[in-house]
Amino acid sequence: MPADGPTILATSGGLRRADRIDWRPAPLTHHAVELAGVTGRAPRVCLVPTAVGDDPRLVMTFYDNAWRLGWDASHVALLPMPNVDDLRAHLLAQDVVWVWGGSVAGLLALWRLHGLDTVLREAWEAGVVLTGVSAGSICWHTGGTTDSFGPTLQPVINGLGLLPYANGVHHDSEPERRPTLRRLVAEGILPTAHATDDGAGLLYRGTELAEVLTERDGARAYRVEADGDGGATETELPFRRLPDRS
Rank of each mutant, 00 (worst) to 15 (best):
L203D: 04
Y222L: 04
V59R: 15
G150P: 00
R216H: 09
V212R: 07
G127D: 07
V76M: 05
L153M: 10
G53M: 03
W67V: 14
T233P: 00
E236Q: 11
V84L: 03
G101C: 04
D64C: 12
A135W: 02
N158G: 06
T152L: 06
C46I: 14
G102D: 01
L237Y: 04
P151C: 10
L153P: 13
D229H: 14
P179S: 15
W71Q: 12
A42N: 05
A66D: 12
G132E: 04
I8Q: 07
L79W: 08
R183Q: 13
E174D: 06
T233E: 10
V169K: 05
L120A: 06
T196N: 14
G218H: 14
G53Q: 09
W140V: 06
P80N: 03
L162V: 03
V169S: 01
G161R: 15
E225R: 10
S103R: 09
R216D: 01
G230P: 05
T29W: 02
L92H: 00
A77P: 01
D217H: 08
W67L: 15
T11I: 11
L110I: 04
W100L: 03
T152N: 07
A51M: 05
I8Y: 08
R121W: 08
G228K: 05
T207V: 13
A126W: 11
L58N: 07
L209K: 09
P164G: 06
P164E: 06
W71T: 05
G115Q: 02
R57H: 15
G14S: 07
G230V: 13
D147P: 00
W67R: 15
R182V: 06
L110D: 01
E176Y: 02
G40D: 03
D54L: 13
